[in-house]
């Protein structure tokens, strides 16, 4: 699997927020086997607290995918992306342009506009989007080479609200890396996303807010792996009626 020409082996991407402690975050990152972690930019205090966090991130050896979380306008997102590129030294940006404070639904119009500006400046954009095919096409046209459809609202843990739409995205964009971003709550949700043919899963709260974050990180890694293997193995078709799996031929008669 390649994101913008970079080969990635782990199909689980992990967020770094909301963990009980930095040590537990580090354990979870390790247990997940992820190669990509997401981070944000926030206001620095004069004591340099951000620098300490940055040091601990570098210790993980993971690639950094900075986000534009919390940005509600194109200008905010573009400025944040430019700051992130300098700070983290990467052209990768998880582009979020939030349209609604309650649902954290992407503003797909602003998203496409920001993606076009940033792609033009050499950014490699990972757009957090809906599962809308037309929006997906416009994001590709704007220069994106990866799409990140939501599974459910950010932080909700509801699992995949619309598996059919994700299946349609897979069929419509067979060559584009698709990462389900947001909404995964349990390992079964992650496995389901992978069974639908998604290339990867990005999650945060499901691990950070689990009773045992490192244990859940491990579970998610195995679920992603199992779902991927299941997809590759071409699952059977569903049937409406029972069909005996044990041969009927040769059955004894006792009556």
């Amino acid at each position: 699997m390649h994101f913008y020409g970079t080969e990635i082996k782990s199909r689980l991407l992990l967020g770094t927020a909301q963990y009980p402690s930095p040590a537990i975050l580090a354990e979870a990152v390790q247990a997940s086997g992820t190669e990509i972690i997401t981070v944000s930019l926030r206001r620095e205090t004069a004591d340099g607290s951000g620098a300490g966090f940055w040091g601990s991130l570098q210790d993980t050896g993971c690639r950094i995918l900075p986000n534009t979380a919390g940005c509600h306008t194109v200008q905010e997102a573009v400025t944040t992306a430019r700051m992130a590129r300098e700070l983290f030294g990467t052209p990768w940006i998880k582009l979020e342009v939030i349209g609604h404070s309650d649902t954290l639904q992407p503003d797909v119009f602003g998203l496409v506009e920001a993606a076009r500006i940033l792609s033009g400046e050499g950014f490699q954009v990972f757009p957090y989007t809906t599962d809308d095919l037309v929006v997906g096409e416009k994001l590709l046209d704007a220069g994106c080479e990866v799409l990140m459809p939501w599974g459910a609202p950010i932080g909700s843990g509801q699992g995949l609200r619309n598996p059919d739409a994700l299946r349609a995205m897979r069929a419509h964009f067979p060559e584009v890396p698709l990462i389900v971003d947001a909404g995964i709550g349990r390992p079964s949700d992650a496995a389901q996303a992978m069974e639908l043919g998604m290339d990867a899963v990005l999650l945060n709260t499901a691990v950070a807010k689990a009773g045992d974050p490192a244990g859940m990180a491990r579970a998610m890694a195995q679920a992603v792996e199992a779902g991927r293997l299941g997809y590759k193995a071409d699952p059977m078709e569903r049937r409406d009626m029972a069909v005996p799996s044990t041969p009927v031929l040769g059955m004894a008669e006792f009556a």
């Binding site: 967020g15 963990y19 926030r42």
Partner: peptide, 10 residues
């Protein structure tokens, strides 16, 4: 002036 630093994010 905005002065931003690396922080935890999802």
């Amino acid at each position: 002036l905005e002065v931003l630093a690396p922080m935890q994010g999802g």
